[in-house]
Write a protein that binds this DNA or RNA. Structure first.
Lengths: 245, 245
DNA sequence: CGAGCTTAACTTGTTGCCAAGTCAGGTTTA
DNA sequence: TAAACCTGACTTGGCAACAAGTTAAGCTCG
């Protein structure tokens, strides 16, 4: 029978509270964007702890994107991201959502090609092993900030014109509509949280510890046919996520 | 007009790919739980990079909870968490969900008290300034692993018996049902991702970089009356999150 | 007296080196 | 001959010292 206090011996190490203190100061509005944060030496002395500990705390905040650092100058608070409202169990396309909220959305098609056989993807799509399956990858940019990566996989058989127009696709939803499919909806979405790979950091212009939310889903049409397998990566700091019941 | 390639100058620093390489090896199943990972010195030599860079990459993995470290021995891969399925737009209570999946759920009531005036909470609950508002905080433990923190706020006026039984509450849903409320549902949930505070790390027995998912919502009854304001913190690595459409 | 230069005091960034811990093989002892 | 001890080679952990960059105050020069 596990008691409350016995949990503590489960922890490998008990870190000191410096990170919490700094974050708390930031949250309480002690600093505004652009303000300089206290130096490593100052905090090391204040908390009677080695400078390297302060550094580690600051580096986490930096890697999470909250602050930036300039050698010789100091560390500064970054402006907060403005957040787009995203209803995660809604059926509006991303493009429509941004339009509805009057946001400046730009989309860049960064991958549009046939893929080699992949067991999971081909299985999800009910594709034959030697069948054409296309991968379309879009980068979503709102108000000049990259905020999301949309990866979609679709059988060429369903949309034969994709071979010609694939590089021009800027919305899978619109593309499917134009191809004659109707009553598009998501079947069931699996959500998880990850940290960005180096490539994702490059694409999303984000630092290494900005959590990303991954939504994996299948898009079906009115006849319950699976059209798309999609993996959408959103920056967690660029959206206000809403769940309607 | 922002072009694709101009994004790269937006990035403060371009980290080297060591973390990606190690993570990739782990994901590909190169190591199984308990296996020893290559030493700092080995990788530093392999990638011709200072040892401290390897250490930083390993420390991130450690702080994310994927590996553990033993001075003099090395670093080892932790077992993966088993995941409970959690439908985030469903109306089943957490307790019911765990039962349905045959999981061993234990709940500990860690806070049960009246709170001082708090503008946001009192406003959400439509509470008067001098009114009793109770805070119930539950720690959820599944198969001996703490996985979630449920914080709920409720007006004492709605459930006068709470003053007597507050320390015994182990499910707000059940408590409300017993108090005579019916047709409970969540109004609209706001979701965000955070990293755990020190205290949250203690409660959830998790390391500092395990992302937590925060769900904020109001629970209403059949008459649309706001009963509860809840903030639920889940470990992102302990659940498979499902969204039904 | 203003502009330019210098320098000390500060800032963050990097790294070599020492500390602490583990373990296997070799040596000593009973 | 088996158990205990020792030691070198390895591991992660910690940090002081040096490197690189910034800036403001003081000094010098035209």
């Amino acid at each position: 029978m596990m008691t409350f206090s016995s949990f503590f011996i489960r922890i490998n190490s008990m870190k000191d509270p410096i990170l919490d203190v700094i974050v708390s100061d930031i949250i309480q509005g002690l600093y505004k964007p652009g303000d300089k944060l206290p130096s490593e030496n100052f905090l090391a002395e204040k908390y009677s702890t080695p400078r390297i500990k302060i550094r580690k705390a600051y580096e986490i905040l930096e890697d999470m994107g909250y602050i930036y650092s300039r050698q010789g100058k100091g560390r500064f608070l970054r402006p907060k991201h403005s957040k787009m409202e995203l209803v995660i169990n809604g059926n509006e396309s991303f493009t429509q959502k941004a339009r509805t909220q009057g946001l400046d959305l730009k989309t860049i098609n960064i991958i549009s090609q046939k893929i080699e056989y992949n067991n999971k993807i081909f299985k999800v799509l009910n594709a034959e092993k030697n069948e054409d399956v296309y991968h379309i990858k879009l980068l979503r940019i709102i108000n000049k900030n990259p905020v999301a990566i949309h990866s979609s996989f679709i059988k060429g058989r369903l949309v034969p014109e994709i071979g010609v127009v694939k590089e021009k696709i800027l919305s899978m939803y619109d593309f499917l509509k134009k191809s004659g499919f109707s009553k598009l909806e998501s079947e069931k979405t699996i959500m998880s949280v990850t940290l960005p790979t180096l490539h994702e950091q490059e694409l999303l212009c984000c630092s290494p510890l900005v959590p990303l939310i991954l939504f994996e889903s299948k898009t079906i049409d009115g006849q319950k046919q699976i059209l798309l397998y999609s993996k959408i990566l959103y920056r967690s700091d660029s959206f206000q996520y809403v769940i309607n019941h």
